[in-house]
Nucleic acid binder design. Structure first.
Lengths: 224, 224
DNA sequence: AGAACAGTTCGGCCCCGACCGAACCATTCT
DNA sequence: AGAATGGTTCGGTCGGGGCCGAACTGTTCT
């Protein structure tokens, strides 16, 4: 068949346990060396080297040579997003082997997923918005209520359609196994949070680090 | 030894070209049979059957047995979300393959399913009968209401038990992925439609071709 | 009843790719 | 310079799993 779909190629790259472990280790956003990744995957360094070459050719990771070290990181946020979605799905299917989620407590707390807020803070925000009636609807089909739309407008949160993504969407959280908010609203809120200076994102990571004042302001603004 | 959800297991399920093709075909939201999926994947039906059981065990798809057909659909929206994310990532590098829609538009419109009416017209009929209270009941367990029974009797629709099939039964539609009406009532209505000369069936096909007048009469009789 | 048809199971073939030992680059340290 | 260290490449082994022919189950049609 001429349609050897790229989706299978990508998925099969992730589908090997060794490579999956390496990718999971890279989810922290840090760049790791081949040796470190070999240890993560539980294989010899030669094997890991082969895996890393394939992942690089597949466009899932990027390599940076620095002296005798080779640093690897996830290629872009799309890759991180796919991994996040896969982890959420795997966790939801009860295929969990041990406690889920990233080790780094900061990542568990708040992180970027695609372009919106994930982690404990993201889940709390989502729960609060639903409880207060800002968001309504069943299951995946959530909508912004009129009252909620007014509230977001009062905060000058941008909901303009930069893409054809839906306004509201629930996204399964990897570490918490609960839903959090995606879509244009999710993006708008995260952009707003950064714009207000309530939080920042350390270079090269997916961590969302709130300032002490910022977290309070965030909680107050969204009544979390 | 490694922590985190078993992402590799899920990904490797998607990572086979045959299975990926099947999943992509199911992205339309329609429920497809094993034979159709085998054609989509470009493999023999035995191979497809093996893939489908593995996908089912992995929780990616759900199976619904209906007579001698097995209908498969994506298990839930989370699975669809993961596939979409993967397709997005693949599209960033490879070429996106577009699915060709269902073939013959006449078949899509109205056709014979066993001995009753299927296709868009069949689905509309079913929806209308339910909305009007002619049919009541939850899920597969549908019954003809007293008012409905009187209405069918007024049209002289034959509900006599020519076989041991139930009076009413919902049947999953091939092209529309929605339910339509089967059972003795479904058969009676189709027989009635032919008997009235509202529609005919071209030799050797499963198409139900309404005449212009016949379609109007049909719609009026059943208030579609 | 038998034929036709949709799916599954079984058995065997065969290839891909994961794995590791060993040898081979490349960089840094002394 | 040689030694130590981080990575890659090569060659060979081996197991998992994808594939199909054939046989079997179950349902529908005539």
């Amino acid at each position: 068949m001429k349609d050897g779909p790229d989706i299978a190629r990508i998925a099969s790259l992730i589908g090997d346990p060794g490579r999956a472990n390496m990718l999971a280790a890279l989810m922290s956003g840090k760049a790791l060396t081949a040796g470190e990744l070999a240890r993560e995957a539980g294989v010899r360094v030669q094997t890991a080297s082969g895996h890393l070459t394939r992942l690089e050719e597949g466009g899932l990771i990027a390599r940076e040579r620095q002296g005798r070290h080779h640093y690897f990181r996830l290629a872009d946020t799309d890759v991180a997003g796919v991994l996040e979605a896969l982890m959420g799905l795997a966790a939801a299917k009860g295929q969990l082997r041990t406690r889920t989620g990233p080790r780094d407590p900061e990542l568990r707390r708040a992180r970027v997923c695609y372009n919106h807020l994930a982690g404990e803070v993201g889940v709390m925000l989502y729960d609060s918005l639903r409880a207060r009636g800002v968001l309504t609807g069943e299951g995946d089909d959530i909508v912004l209520s009129d009252a909620g739309r007014a509230e977001m407008a009062a905060l000058s949160i941008d909901l303009s359609a930069t893409s054809r993504s839906p306004e509201c969407k629930s996204c399964l959280d990897w570490s918490a196994r609960r839903s959090h908010l995606a879509g244009r609203l999710g993006r708008g809120i995260l952009d707003f949070t950064f714009a207000q200076g309530w939080a920042m994102r350390p270079e090269g990571t997916r961590i969302v680090r709130f300032t002490a004042i910022g977290e309070g302001a965030f909680r107050k603004a969204f009544q979390v």
